[in-house]
Design a protein around this nucleic acid. Sequence first.
DNA 1: ATGAAAGCGCTAACAC
DNA 2: GTGTTAGCGCTTTCAT
Lengths: 358, 358
Amino acid sequence: MAVTIYEVAKKAGVGIGTVSRVLNDSPQISPATRAKVLKVIKELNFQPHAMAQSLARRKTHTIGVVVPFFTGYFYVELLRSIQRALSQHKFDLILYGVDDLQKRDASLKRALQQRRVDGVLLVSMNLAENFAVEFQRRRLPLALVDAYYDQFDSITVNNQEGAYSAPHHLIRLGYRHIAMLTGHFESIPAQTRLHGCQRALQEAGMTLPEGMIITSDTVLGEAARLNDGFNQEAGYLAMRNFLAHQPRPDCPLAVFATSDIQAIGAIKAVKESGLRIPDDIAIIGFDDIEFAEYAGLTTVRQPMAEMGLKAVERMMALLENADLAPEHVRLDTKLVVRESCGAAKLQPALVQSSPHLN
Amino acid sequence: MAVTIYEVAKKAGVGIGTVSRVLNDSPQISPATRAKVLKVIKELNFQPHAMAQSLARRKTHTIGVVVPFFTGYFYVELLRSIQRALSQHKFDLILYGVDDLQKRDASLKRALQQRRVDGVLLVSMNLAENFAVEFQRRRLPLALVDAYYDQFDSITVNNQEGAYSAPHHLIRLGYRHIAMLTGHFESIPAQTRLHGCQRALQEAGMTLPEGMIITSDTVLGEAARLNDGFNQEAGYLAMRNFLAHQPRPDCPLAVFATSDIQAIGAIKAVKESGLRIPDDIAIIGFDDIEFAEYAGLTTVRQPMAEMGLKAVERMMALLENADLAPEHVRLDTKLVVRESCGAAKLQPALVQSSPHLN
DNA sequence: ATGAAAGCGCTAACAC
DNA sequence: GTGTTAGCGCTTTCAT
């Protein structure tokens, strides 16, 4: 079939060991034979068989990436940067797209037991304890991205600070009537962001009364359950409810949506109710998905590209030495000012709004 | 280290061949021993080593997918459906993200020569002849998605029909003043769409004068060169040029943008010029990217999910028998009516506008 | 039906 | 330096 080291060896008049050494550029080999072998390799257009190498080396040179089925800019951008970094290190990436927990577990099991990968990057998903134990037992490097687990490396975003900066921005602009639109209450990011938001308000001597917390928990329907309520439909419905029960505001209202996708839904609800943005209601989002720029949505950007890069760097370190103590990197968010808070004139181009910058 | 068939065999008191047979559920094995072996496998929590299997079977159970670095909904959706279908067949997917032609070739070379994959899905990229030859020589299954090459299977979208249906829709709505906004002239899809568009106009006794073809070729700057001019910036600039040189239209103008992303840019230009959509200018797009729904953009949807599914099905067939004659599937587009052509009242809900339908 | 043995294509330890 | 050999963990004849 395809050409093997045996043929190369024969044609070059050397042993297969020598060919192997040339392949792995071993230091102790005479320049002469190295050149000779290299020449034959070129001639035969030989490339080593990846599977055979993997088997012999006990290394696959492949990383498994488990991602929730990447809808939305956040995951795309993240995956893109992971892939880019991985290929720079000459690693392949096996993509495990996951849309439910069952598939998540199947992917992890597969990665763990079939030894198809040298390490796993788990994105935006929490890790069940039994898997944690397995990973440690197998000593299979694992790093969490946009998720946290004490015993493993993690790259997260400073949700607290991000959620602080949004209302802080609103307050600076003069808003005194602030509501928060969020996903399901039990979701961890929802809670973290709530705390950040509350802190900002408290520092300004304000509070976030319960009536001003617009949560997708109030929303019915199957669609609204997706992704912990962080979806467009839930944002739309929750906002519509809110507007219906809320007396017409007497002073400018600002809404902090804890995800851009919900903000999009909320904007739709606001427009439908005949109110204008930002004149009647200001909206600030979270994530900086692709939409946001188009919609002129002021938002808090997560540094996706950097997350991916850092995750891969960390993975490479773990590959060198699996015994490194877990490191928890927390990256900072960045306020991206656009038009949805009426701040365009006050804060001209505080931040570049084009993606692909970091 | 990890448990192997040898340990299983020993503990079950059988030979390794028997264990292997159980694993591959060979028919000729007594129910008794099968049960016995299965039990030990459970006890030892044994899973076969994927690399060893690959080496012995000369099959990797993995498909390489080469995608242009998937910015935008089209690629995400496509990739998602490919991954889903692949995992249903218990195949892994190695992702080769590519942002330039050099990386494309490197990925193909890698896939071809290192035998890490059983087949390749090449998305939205044309195939150089030397690679075509290589693929055939190696008998490595290859299918093109959103691209065409005579000797290999391909799944494409009926660009002609799609590009016909857009102006046809405009004409039905009463527009008599129609322009087309497209990417670089030499790009194949640009030409195909031009022909479809012209056909629609001709059938209505109209023509597309050169001045009404707004192409990104007129646009300067590096950004405008990306992706054959099918990008937001190019759409914006080209449209701005057009509006600047065009006398204020005396009758309603409609613009067919041959990609949604350009349409987005065009919308921006229109709004900046103080004109309204659809009142002054109607816009219809192509692709139905995620934006489109939010922007209320009437557009022509490409059946991404179906493309992915079909591509994988075809790949599975090729895996069975690499000698199948190449099949060229051409899927139909679907007109998605929203508000950007002012057709909301005339054509109520002609088509559901929610994604994930096909 | 099942055990033994010969690969699959490579790496790495061991000789010389 | 370089050839030889023994694995890596499995599949698959070939006997029996």
